[in-house]
């Protein structure tokens, strides 16, 4: 194995991130992410593609290294998002999807070095695509709603979210470091 492979597969040795990060800050971030998804397009047009709750769930899963906490966090964020969704969509759609995202992101973080920017980029893109596709499948399978799925558009939005995820994760890393001091 070369140096890059070692760097990617190396499991970082660090203390529990959650213990250092303030619960209040986490709650505030979650609320901001959920509400921001509904208000950001009003403030900045053409930003409907931005999935801040998803990115936050992915980041929590990648940094927490605990699947149970990550999936519960994902379920919480998803249900919060569901409560603000249109009334024709039952509560639980985003909850299930983000539960899976939290679980899988935590599982991945146990095997890969998620401090690497490239890994973060790829994982952000992958989880966005998975999130969108699984949500579409659930709407078709569980609700019987025929909604279009545009892979090309989803690909572009996934790439944009991955690009946004890099600086966002960096900012969250700094918050974690400052909290650890």
């Amino acid at each position: 194995m070369n140096e890059t492979s070692d760097q990617i597969l190396q499991r970082p040795l660090r203390e529990s991130w959650f213990s250092r990060f303030q619960v209040a800050a986490l709650a505030a971030l979650t609320i901001v992410a959920v509400i921001g998804k509904f208000y950001l397009p009003r403030l900045i047009p053409n930003t409907e593609w931005l999935e801040l709750p998803l990115l936050l769930t992915v980041y929590f899963g990648l940094m927490r290294h605990g699947p149970i906490a990550s999936l519960l966090f994902g379920a919480f964020v998803g249900l919060a998002e569901d409560s603000l969704s249109p009334a024709n969509l039952p509560i639980g759609m985003y909850g299930i999807t983000k539960t899976l995202v939290g679980y899988f992101s935590a599982s991945v973080s146990m095997r890969f070095n998620v401090e690497n920017s490239f890994v973060r980029l790829v994982l952000s893109f992958f989880f966005f695509f998975f999130h969108a596709f699984f949500y579409w499948v659930m709407r078709r399978a569980l609700l019987g709603q025929i909604v279009p799925f545009d892979p090309q558009e989803t690909f572009v939005h996934g790439a944009l979210n991955a690009v946004v995820a890099l600086p966002l994760f960096a900012v969250l890393d700094r918050m974690r470091l400052s909290g650890s001091v």
């Binding site: 699947p67 039952p90 639980g92």
Partner: peptide, 30 residues
């Protein structure tokens, strides 16, 4: 971990199925 995941997902699925079955919107939460 997998067990907790299944429990959480199944619980949400049942809740979702209940909403679809009864055609009731959980208005209180909203």
């Amino acid at each position: 971990n997998l067990t907790v995941l299944l429990i959480v997902v199944v619980a949400q699925l049942l809740y979702l199925a209940y909403q679809v079955k009864t055609n009731r919107d959980e208005r209180l939460i909203r």
